[in-house]
Each structure stands twice: as C-alpha cells, then as structure tokens.
Design a protein around this nucleic acid. Structure first.
Lengths: 167, 167
DNA sequence: TTAAATTTTCAATATTTATTGAAAGTTTAT
DNA sequence: ATAAACTTTCAATAAATATTGAAAATTTAA
C-alpha cells in the first residue's frame, strides 16, 4: 500500500472514530493529520491537505486547542503558528474523557439531583419515577468515579498495574 | 418539584446523554420515557407524550429494538404492541458498549490493520507514519479488550468485585 | 374472504449543523 | 506610523440529518 493512500485512509477512519468521541469530523481529521505528521503543520498546510477553507481550519484548530489535544508551536524566526498533536494515546484518551465528563456527565448529574426532589403524591407513577431516578443516579455517580479514576490513572500504582494487563 | 416537570426534565437530559452515546435525540428520549414509565407504552402513547409523528416513533422504536435496549411486549387480548425499556443501567451500558464496539472500534481496527502494510520507502514520513499507526493499533486493541472485559464483566468474579469498589 | 386495526415505508420537507470566503482584526518588522 | 503577514469572525450558503404524514403493507378478528 502506498503512503498517500494509507495516510488518507487513516485520516478518514480516525475522523469517524473521533466523531463518535464527540469531536466533529474535521476536528478529528485535523487531529489525525497532525498525529501522523512528522513535523508540526501550519494552518495553510492543514487547509491544503484536507481541502478545507481557512475559516473552517481556524475554528477546528481552536476547538482542538480547547480540548487540549493539540498544541501551538512557534518556530523561531517564523511568523506563522504551527500545530502538533498529542501523540500519546493514553494522554489523549484521558483528555477526551475529561472533556466529555465535563460536557456530558456533569449536566445529567445536575438534572438527576434536581428531579430527585419530585414531590411524592403517592401515585404509582411517582413511585416508579423516584425508583428509576435513584437507579440512574447511582449509575451516573459510579460512571463518574470510574472516569475520574481513569483520568487520574497515571498517578495510581494500582490502576496503572491493572492497565498493563491489557497490553 | 412537580412530577410532569421532573419527567420532562429527565427526558430532556437523558436525551442529551443518549445523544452523546451515539443514539439520536428522539431515540434517547423514547428510551427515557420508557425508563420512567411504570407500564409498557404503545407507539401511540409515545407519539403523544413526545409530540412526534407516527413515522418518527416507528423508526426510532425499531432502532432501539435493534440496539436491544427496549423490548416488545404483547398484552393478551390487545392488538397493539407495547414497549418497555431495559431498566438495569449496567445491562444498558453493556448493551451500548457492545453496539459501539461493533460500530466504531471494529472499523478502525480494520483500517489500522490495512494501513500497517504501507510500504517503507525509507522516508521520514513513512517512518513516522508506521510508528504512529503502531501506537494507535496498540491503543485500539487495548480499548477493545477493556470493552470486551466490561461487556463480559458480569460473568467475571474479578471484575464484578472491582466494580463494586465504585458503589 | 373482508375489512378494520395496526405497522411500515419513503418522498417531500424542515431543521440542524458544517463550511465557505471575504472583510475585519491583530501582530510584527521596518 | 505603515504595511505586509497572518489570524479571527461571521453572515451567507451548502450539506447532512431528522421529521412528517399519507399511502402501502401487514396482521388479525370475525
């Protein structure tokens, strides 16, 4: 298989995976491109490789910076900014987990806490509702601590040992 | 807080979470509605509660059935079909993990395997590419076995014990 | 059978989300 | 200061996705 074909296949596939991780397609593609690139790339190079507009490139680069999964690089003597990806997949996964926890889990935990306070009118509906909310809350809290553990796994001897089982 | 308000808040919030799990909004809302409902509901009741069309209801119910997170219920003497949700959150999470593994992880593993076969022309690009692909492959495989372990966790003494730590 | 009840399909339409590109803004070298 | 290099913004537009609803298909009771 030729390099250029392999590269575009990988960018495509990583784009799809990233999409299902909550990034958008172009964000994920830019990330993939920076992943496989030996050198940091400028916005122009990214636009060129992925055939996207300047505005699109700019917005998605910014989003990736916000997610902390790519970094801004300054080359001395050069005016342009360059970007490189976080290439350590575990750091990457941790970073994504952190963002998603903030964006997804925190809101549902808040809602579950709110709706727990539903007034018990003695009806079967209310009874069932309370039961389900309690179950969901337990689940969300467990997910939250699992995620938290994962995010902090690097620092934990126990978990980093467990993780090694999966080599 | 009133029951009807709590219910619609929960459906809304669960809809958002489900969306980020790879379901679509209405799918997730139907699931939420069936979660909190004490009795199985018919398509008409779902249409009515969520204010969606028959076609929409039908399609999303079918999708939920495909994901195996709601069940078809027949009431003797009734012509209509009823639906109820899987209410055990761990079964639910496992089912979702299973689907996503199939839909997301399997394709990227396939691509990574393919692009590994890129021909080494000795250039720096190719060298870096091969390195990154190897790293990604290792990561994807580990994720795969983690997921697999999670999916099968119920049967495993070791993991069900570990899980209990998160109560 | 027939026909009423129910479910499914799908072309048309509406809604949401992503993308463009040119203008405005910012930074830096001289 | 000026202007070139570069980045950001955002209204307009395009593309993707979701939704409707009426017609077709299917199921069931009598």
């Amino acid at each position: 298989m030729k390099y250029t074909e392999a590269k575009s296949d990988l960018i495509q596939a990583w784009g799809n995976l990233g999409y299902s991780w909550g990034l958008n397609k172009v964000m994920a593609q830019i990330h993939a491109l920076l992943m496989v690139s030996a050198k940091p790339l400028s916005a122009d190079e990214i636009m060129d490789e992925l055939k996207i507009s300047r505005g699109n490139a700019n917005m998605n680069i910014r989003a990736l910076l916000e997610w902390n999964i790519i970094y801004r690089i300054s080359v001395p003597g050069e005016r342009k900014e360059y970007f490189k990806a976080e290439k350590d997949t575990w750091v990457l996964a941790r970073q994504v987990a952190k963002e998603r926890r903030k964006r997804e889990l925190e809101p549902i935990l808040k809602t579950l806490k709110n709706v727990s306070a539903v007034e018990n009118d003695g009806s079967e509906e209310t009874k069932e509702f309370k039961k389900v909310v309690k179950e969901l809350k337990g689940f969300a809290e467990k997910s939250d601590s699992l995620l938290d553990t994962f995010i902090k796994a690097e620092e934990s001897w126990f978990w980093s040992t467990i993780m090694k089982v999966f080599k």
